[in-house]
Design a binder for these strands. Structure first.
Lengths: 336, 336
DNA sequence: TTGAAAGCGGTACCAC
DNA sequence: GTGGTACCGCTTTCAA
């Protein structure tokens, strides 16, 4: 900038005005300066500008478990979209399910003076780093809350979604349902399992009610399903707790040749192409991400306030896998 | 930092030493300072530090078309992983297929003094912004090259991958193949179409060879497929140009009840669960991302050099959809 | 082992 | 309209 100024015979301040589009520079001078800027390939130094104006860098930080998981990548896409509408950039990082990494990433983002922080937290209890972050910038917990933290939360309507899944299966006269959730350490897995039990109880469905959480491998999960479909009172329909589990369950049903009603939590690519097409509780991850970003900016402009929780409704997308499937013996008789 | 120093009765420089883990501070002083840092909740200001040391912010920029597309999100995940091993953060943004947005994002990333830039470029010709970026930092073109740019490129082995797809179908005695590519404006679509034609020609397969590029809608694509499977010389097998097209083709084959051999370029979730399981050219997007990130850092340490192109091999994953499917009439006879 | 002072590239504030 | 100058928070350099 000093360089540009020198070559144009004007002060550094005038150049600054041009660069920032401020008023008070004659058109002629401005033009000359602009040409010089291009000629010298001048690049404004964001960091230096922040330093004096003591603002925040126009970036929003995002921490998720795994950027490759379609659920999280769609969250990221929604956030990025919303953030960029406001001339900000998204800095995203994977915590890889490690609480330590999570804390380190929070510190790193804070040091880079992000405008806000969106996090899919690993633990239900606040870490020191997370608490510190809340003192500096607006923090939004996405998909899972953290108790006693001064941060907004944007959550899926787990209870409503799970209820719609169970009601759907009950309406198709499934009686013995099972729930298969992801790793027990994940808040949504617990939450959805609880919601499943509530729904089953309130509809008065008969037992035994199977409801288990992971961690699973493809084969341990398949074994569990096989176990549930044997015996005098076999499970007739399954509700899965998220996309990871749904895919694994589909694989198991194919490999072990199981006929089970199915409703998955989370929509996924090809849900309409597998056979039968899978009925799912759709949670609009892009929308969740957008909502979280909006929350950051609204908190930014409205200042401190009591933390609020936004619950984003889900939608049951019926595709057929929820129908009652006749036991094999019966079906064979019917066909012949 | 000045604050911490004042309260400890030491100079700002001493605090700086402690914060940066430099030697030359007595253990006692260091301890006192560290406590004060925690007590005051001191946060180091990355930007200010950069300013004086005139280094680059420890971040790598990534620009893709669409973060929600699993191919790109897996690239991002690979990059993030590799970048974080080196204590950097990833700033990612979606260009949404707009060249103008792409340029703006490049400028924004440059202004933030990223260490390097990884881009899935929209155009095959360099824009001014992209050329400028190459003068400042290492730039890597991922998935698609840009001609005459002083940047490394990391590409999938489109030619080899496509050849393995065509050979596989030919080995299963498919004779009339068709290629369905994504939007014609995308370099890989063109490249894979050309590779398809070469492979078909070199294997001496008879015509007519159908080979078309998008843009497609689900229904225009389905219509095209229906057209190709009619007439005296119907197409018996299809090669698709990327995951988007594969999914759309699968939907079409299901909705319109088409029996076609299929090999898809790009692996995808559930490729093993749909029926028949889809044989694909697997390109390891996470690996591509990692390779690109490595390229940034290797260029950073080795300094300027002639731009190099890294071609990452593909792997044909055979799952069954490449088999020859008997025409409907014949098959019906055989079964009864 | 410690500190003083200059300066990184901008912006704020006020004078001309 | 334009320029001068202090200063943002930190690192560098050199002196104590």
């Amino acid at each position: 900038m000093a360089d540009v100024g020198a070559r144009c015979g004007v002060s550094i301040k005038t150049v600054s005005r041009v660069v920032n589009g401020e008023a008070g520079v004659s058109t002629k001078t401005a033009l000359r300066i602009q040409q010089m800027i291009v000629e010298l390939g001048f690049q404004r130094h964001e960091g230096a500008s922040l330093l004096r104006s003591s603002g925040r860098s126009e970036t929003v930080g995002l921490i998720v478990e795994d950027l490759a998981n379609p659920f999280y990548s769609q969250l990221a896409a929604g956030i990025e979209r919303e953030v960029r509408l406001r001339q900000h950039l998204l800095v995203s990082a994977s915590s890889e399910r490690s609480s330590e990494d999570e804390s380190q990433l929070i510190e790193a983002l804070l040091a880079r003076r992000v405008t806000g922080l969106i996090i899919v937290p690993i633990g239900a209890e606040p870490t020191d780093a997370l608490r510190a972050a809340c003192l500096e910038v607006p923090v939004v917990c996405l998909d899972r809350p953290v108790s006693g933290l001064d941060a907004d939360a944007v959550l899926s309507d787990n209870q409503g979604g799970m209820r719609s899944a169970v009601e759907h299966l009950a309406a198709h006269r499934h009686e013995r349902l099972a729930f298969l959730g992801d790793d027990a350490s994940i808040w949504t897995a617990q939450r959805r399992a609880a919601a499943f039990r509530e729904a089953v109880a309130s509809l008065g469905l008969p037992g035994p009610i199977h409801c288990e959480l992971g961690p699973w491998t493809d084969s341990s999960l398949a074994d569990r399903l096989v176990g549930w479909t044997r015996g005098r009172l076999p499970v007739t329909a399954l509700v899965t707790g998220n996309n990871r589990v749904t895919l694994s369950a589909l694989r198991a049903m194919q490999d072990r040749d199981l006929d089970l009603g199915l409703v998955g939590y989370d929509d996924f690519d090809l849900s309409d192409v597998v056979s039968p097409p899978v009925t799912v509780v759709h949670q609009d991850p892009v929308g969740l991400g957008e909502r979280a970003a909006q929350q950051v900016f609204s908190r930014l402009s409205s200042g401190r306030a009591t933390p609020m929780t936004v619950v984003v409704p889900t939608r049951l997308v019926v595709r057929g896998s929820g129908r009652l499937i006749a036991p094999k013996g019966l079906r064979a008789q019917a066909t012949h």
